[in-house]
Design a binder for these strands. Sequence first.
DNA 1: GGATTGCTGTTAATGAAATGACAACATTTG
DNA 2: CAAATGTTGTCATTTCATTAACAGCAATCC
Lengths: 221, 221
Amino acid sequence: MSNHIFLVEDDESLAYILKDSLENGGYKVSNFYDGKSARLAFSRGAYHLCIIDVMLPLLDGFSLASYIRQMDRSVPILFLTARDAEEDKINGFKLGADDYITKPFSLEELKLRIEVFLRRTSQTSQCLIGKFKFDYTNLKLECSETQFILTQKEADLLKFLCMHADVVVKRETILKELWGDDDYFMGRSLDVFISKLRKYLSSDSSIEIKNYHGVGFKLLM
Amino acid sequence: MSNHIFLVEDDESLAYILKDSLENGGYKVSNFYDGKSARLAFSRGAYHLCIIDVMLPLLDGFSLASYIRQMDRSVPILFLTARDAEEDKINGFKLGADDYITKPFSLEELKLRIEVFLRRTSQTSQCLIGKFKFDYTNLKLECSETQFILTQKEADLLKFLCMHADVVVKRETILKELWGDDDYFMGRSLDVFISKLRKYLSSDSSIEIKNYHGVGFKLLM
DNA sequence: GGATTGCTGTTAATGAAATGACAACATTTG
DNA sequence: CAAATGTTGTCATTTCATTAACAGCAATCC
């Protein structure tokens, strides 16, 4: 699920460099060279982040941003602006811009900021299990009283069960998916992990990892 | 990592309104009602921005600011001052104040200025890590007692961890980003650098670079 | 019912791999 | 060459998936 970046920059060579290096960074980039065509394009596409030069032909960056804000109240907008145009900033923040980068800037800088924003919006794959909050990417399983740090494999298994909550998942399916194969010892290993997860979740009696004899498991909550 | 605002205002109702609305704006706010207790508190905490009323009981805003400036050479200080006290401004700028807001002011105005300042500090690549101030562009990591000059690679890594504070960053991601590739020896090299950073940061026990076995690292502070 | 067999739950032991700390080496820079 | 920096190698330690061991349970058969 690669993130789609909406880039509006009229300086062709800069635009090219940005597009190229962002694409190398694994993003999908759509590039527009003036405010008007950008505005039209935005209404037709779905984007995860906008990078907009303040100075644009036909329609300036602020007007474009204000239009985008109307269409989408949450998409992060990142302005490219000249070095010390302080009043630009105030102007922009009013429109709900999220950040500025002043030219000239380093690509690294830009990439880092993009990551920060995309992280902020795309929730770090969290899900609720009874009274617990499970954060898969941070391997964290927490409730008001306690917090557990899971190992990768524990987290993988719990995630798999979550994604198939209330459904009986076959042992075979889990093993193929998470262990890559299915033999006697892997099966025993799975049992050990199930046991560990049950222990983590034991403080909430509404949660149950139920065994279906000879078939598999089901996460109930 | 939400920004922490140091607010000193003796008018209780104003203080309450400010604190409340800034907290709603996503900031963490610590509020003090007189200069003396504020001075004590500042020396014990780490803040990203200070908002100080000029007129304060026990210790006036200027004296407080001058103390803060000694402790921290770069934290933005924003004064709240009466309408037309021009000499206050001159006084304040000498002490290294960064901006003034004259009462009465609008909340929007204040919020915008705060954002501008916080962006500015983040743009100059300074960030706070526990009791340390880390200046990426100058490769400087300092606290009240000591100062380290980092190498470029040390600084790169620390910056990367800062930008992803409180998130588990995969080894692979770090290596791809900072070493350009990912093989066994680069992995070992990364471990060496992590070890160096831990040594630099060891004097503040609230900072931790936590390892997630087989996964990566997370900067906690 | 009672015996047998295979499946599951749990805990502990084991060994391979990841990590931390440090030293040695290589490379660059002035 | 001397100093600074990053990489590679070594060894001790830690972590964790797996394996082993044993006890309880479920299904099947007589």
